[in-house]
Amino acid sequence: MSGIQIHQINKSFNKGKVQALTDISFNVQPGELFGLIGPDGAGKTTLFRILTTLWLADSGTASVNGLDVIKQYADIRKIIGYMPGKFSLYQDLTVEENLQFFATLFHTSIEKNYDLIKDIYIQLEPFKARKAGKLSGGMKQKLALCCALIHKPKVLFLDEPTTGVDPVSRKEFWEMLKRLQKELTIVVSTPYMDEANLCDRIALIQKGHILQIDKPSAIINAFDKTLFAVKTSNMHKLISDVRDLTEVNSCFGFGDYLHVTTNNNSTDENHLIAAITAKQHTDIEVKIIQPEIEDCFMALMEKE
């Protein structure tokens, strides 16, 4: 059995006072790009540490590429690549020395698996004599990815590789992941909901619970309310005005629109337009839209 199997994993800290993960069960298929989507404190890093054999779960079982995370932990460590959320390379070694170090640790060489990292390493090559601590954020991230790949792992774990990274660098990072996916199974976590659509399947996770697991498109299709986008000339005032309407179920800012659902779930915009007009708004625009993953996440959070 390859891929990843997770069954009923629980993990707590501080003698049970903080429940980090509750009954987590799911599978990742071989060759899949699987996303763990959730905010800080959701339990993403805890789950990564259990799967990468750094922590023990309180209960439950898990296997990576058919290997048990407890009984066969040493074998798992040989076939996985792990890029933790914090930059964990040697700051006072150069780019090339870091890569050399990780290759040697896994009894291999840069040359042997160069094909896998070539696309990424080419961008680092001009700086190969620079100390890792002196690299820019984007370059550090690329080096960390190369180091996690240098032994040609079967499964790659990436814990928030794009946090704090600007939107353009984030897009480039995901393009790299899409190319790598042809070679290995990838589990990646992110707090950015817009990155969910780039995964084959995602788990939405919050406070140690999985809210939903599915393909991004299926999660969007499962959104069971009519979603309206609403805009007027006074958006600050509009939020409280819309929330005051008794028929409104939820109302959140979304860029230059509000996203609104109603209790009766009607598909008629006119009622909403009339109610907003009565509150002295002008330039009113109301339209029915497709939800995004972030709409789904917030709806699921409110159900919890």
Partner: peptide
């Protein structure tokens, strides 16, 4: 707001 859940 980095890393904060969408409602917060």
């Amino acid at each position: 707001t980095g890393g904060v859940d969408p409602i917060t």
